[in-house]
Design a protein around this nucleic acid. Structure first.
Length: 283
DNA sequence: ATAGGCACCTGGTGGC
DNA sequence: TGCCACCAGGTGCCTA
């Protein structure tokens, strides 16, 4: 569900409520999500001050003054909701506990941070801050698409000889970390590349054009507060609006938006996931 | 090593 | 209204 822009939007929404604040009270309402929560999680969080919130790929990392870092993943349906009155800036009331509210953190600034995840594909873990590079969920991740390590030379080399479709390759978090189904579809449309093309048989020149395109799509989406499909909301409850900018995702049967292109957006299924593309513009 | 499929869950939607 | 099939922003694990 949430891809890099949505996760970054959530991280930014959590900052005023959490950064510099101490966790006063922790409610853990079930044993875990995709995996069991770490032993003693509530006790390890209680009393800790959040020094900073970072993002790595689709993970939110919270460095605590206890020497530990929490790792949060939202899976397909995870949401973070902020209520209460941190720093006297917000006027929201605490929300009553709802179905699928799994973890509730009350901060010493009056903010309440609630993790809600109906499908429970998300994850919450704790590790020593110094062990981040070894964490099972982080150690195989490729470069950040908005970072310096992700450049034309890198992507061309990473895809060289790959027999897999470009769609699958860009979804592979070991190649580039943070893209998901929406933004891969949108980037391939902008790049004029058919999602089923074998990654290793696309010219280096065309692969290189994908790098600035991927960066642009992600940056535009972050600026828009992410995409709100179904129920994705920012931590303050606002809707993102990048979904209005989709050129192909979810537009099966709709007209291609390229001027003078009269084709219709098509949906195919690749390794169990929908790919949307224009058969005229993408080759 | 790598590509493809399955599994994990709940909820919304659309057809009959 | 009820029931059912299908779909969903992810990703680890198992199989060939």
């Amino acid at each position: 569900m949430p891809e890099l822009p949505e996760v970054e939007t959530v991280r930014r929404g959590m900052e005023p409520a959490m950064t510099g604040a101490r966790i006063e009270r922790v409610q853990v309402r079930r044993d875990g999500l995709r995996w069991p929560f770490p032993p003693g999680m509530a006790d390890r969080l209680t009393g800790a001050r959040v020094e900073r919130l970072r993002r790595r790929s689709k993970y939110i990392l919270g460095d605590l003054d206890t020497g530990e870092t929490f790792l949060l993943h939202l899976g397909m349906s995870g949401r973070i909701l902020i209520s209460g009155d941190p720093l006297g800036q917000f006027v929201h009331h605490h929300r009553a506990a709802e179905t699928h509210d799994h973890v509730v953190l009350d901060m010493d600034n009056g903010a309440r941070v609630t993790l809600n995840d109906p499908r429970r594909f998300g994850a919450l873990d704790l590790m020593p801050t110094t062990d981040e590079a070894q964490h099972m969920l982080l150690k195989r991740l490729g470069p950040e698409p908005l970072g310096n390590r992700f450049d034309e030379a890198y992507l061309v080399a990473a895809l060289r000889g790959k027999n897999t479709p470009i769609k699958s390759a860009l979804l592979d978090q070991r190649i580039v970390a943070g893209l998901g189904n929406i933004y891969v579809c949108e980037a391939l449309f902008r790049g004029g590349i058919h999602p089923a093309r074998k990654a290793g048989r696309i010219s280096a020149r065309r692969i290189a054009t994908l790098v600035p395109i991927i960066r642009a799509v992600l940056n535009e989406a972050i600026l828009a507060g992410g995409s709100s499909l179904r129920d994705f909301r920012q931590a303050d409850g606002e809707l993102g609006y990048f979904q209005h900018s989709f050129l192909v995702y979810g537009r099966e049967g709709g007209a291609c938006r390229t001027p003078d292109c009269n084709r219709v957006i098509t949906r195919i299924v690749q390794s169990g996931r929908s790919s949307f593309y224009c058969p005229g513009c993408q080759r």
